[in-house]
């Protein structure tokens, strides 16, 4: 098998992968890191330093936004898991045949639709002249129009909605593979609903929980549309700051530093999640 011909075949297969990963993933990130270490000292004059990172740590607006983005994303992930788990369990364990397929498809359809359209839907629902406000007035609960848009709760609603499918789909897949007889055995041995959930179902669903949480967290952290469109004037998101540095201020050095900090944060949290749950990236994501 190690003839020259099959070696040539191997190299021909390896080439596209390497070209793709090196020119579009590895080198751009190395390049971005180098740019983030550049300090502008004059027109077209640069020095290598950590000045851009210092700017980040010395300006409370920047690191406050960074921290806010992080904890809001963690909260959105937790909320998505809490809301999505019972639904995934229902689809995987309590329905069969055609009902199961239908429910699963109903979960998938919103995911196929552009995030922009989904966010637009929430804007129409939540705005002052929107559906929810008019409905409440019609019921007589409130007397005048109410603005539900432009606050953190609206951002949270949008984030959870946008990422729900990435949680439900892996959960349904892992819960599906749990044999019902294990749950029955748990009941036979005197387990309660709660102890069976804790000791049988959740441990079995762990790979699904981890991969769902990683994707949801990353999507929330890197989200740009939802915070911009649903959030208010002072509900900043870190991706918004990156966009401003790059496109509005044209300060690529600082923007690159911000980008690297965001990348570092997301890698760190993904790494911690994998370590804490004893999973590996290849096992949870490569399915």
């Amino acid at each position: 098998m190690t003839s020259d011909k099959s070696k040539l075949g191997f190299i021909l297969l390896l080439a596209p992968l390497l070209i793709w990963l090196i020119t579009l993933i590895v080198l751009p990130h190395v390049g971005m890191f180098l740019v983030s270490l550049r300090e502008k000292t004059g027109i077209r004059e640069y020095e290598t330093s950590f000045a851009n990172y210092a700017v980040f740590f010395n300006e409370p607006l920047y690191w406050n936004t960074f921290a806010r983005t992080a904890y809001m994303s963690i909260a959105a992930t937790a909320l998505t898991l809490l809301i999505g788990f019972p639904v995934a369990y229902y689809i995987a364990k309590l329905t069969r045949g055609r009902t199961k397929t239908t429910l699963f498809l109903m979960c998938l359809i919103p995911f196929w639709v552009s995030e922009l359209v989904r966010t637009f839907g929430w804007m129409i629902l939540l705005r002052e002249t929107g559906v929810l406000s008019s409905f409440l007035q019609y019921l007589g609960v409130v007397s005048g129009p109410v603005e539900f848009l432009y606050n953190d709760a609206a951002i949270m609603t949008g984030l959870v909605y946008t990422s729900m499918l990435f949680m439900v789909v892996p959960l349904v897949t892992t819960l599906d593979s749990l044999d019902d007889s294990l749950i029955e055995a748990g009941y036979d041995l005197g387990g309660t609903n709660w102890s069976i959930l804790r000791e049988i179902i959740i441990p079995h669903a762990m790979p699904g929980i981890v991969s769902g949480c990683i994707v949801v967290f990353m999507l929330s952290l890197g989200n740009y549309l939802t915070p911009i469109l649903l959030g208010g004037k002072d509900s900043l998101w870190f991706t918004g700051l990156i966009y401003n540095q790059f496109i509005t201020r044209f300060n690529w050095e600082l923007g690159s530093a911000f980008g690297f900090l965001l990348l570092g944060l997301s890698s760190l949290i993904v790494f911690l999640a994998l370590k804490l749950s004893g999973q590996s990236l290849g096992k949870t994501m490569g399915r």
Partner: peptide
């Protein structure tokens, strides 16, 4: 693993890194 990485890099970062490069 390197091949899977684009799944966990935020899209906006992929965009700016390619832009800078």
């Amino acid at each position: 693993i390197l091949m899977l990485l684009p799944l966990i890099i935020p899209g906006i970062i992929l965009g700016i890194s390619i832009l800078v490069f």
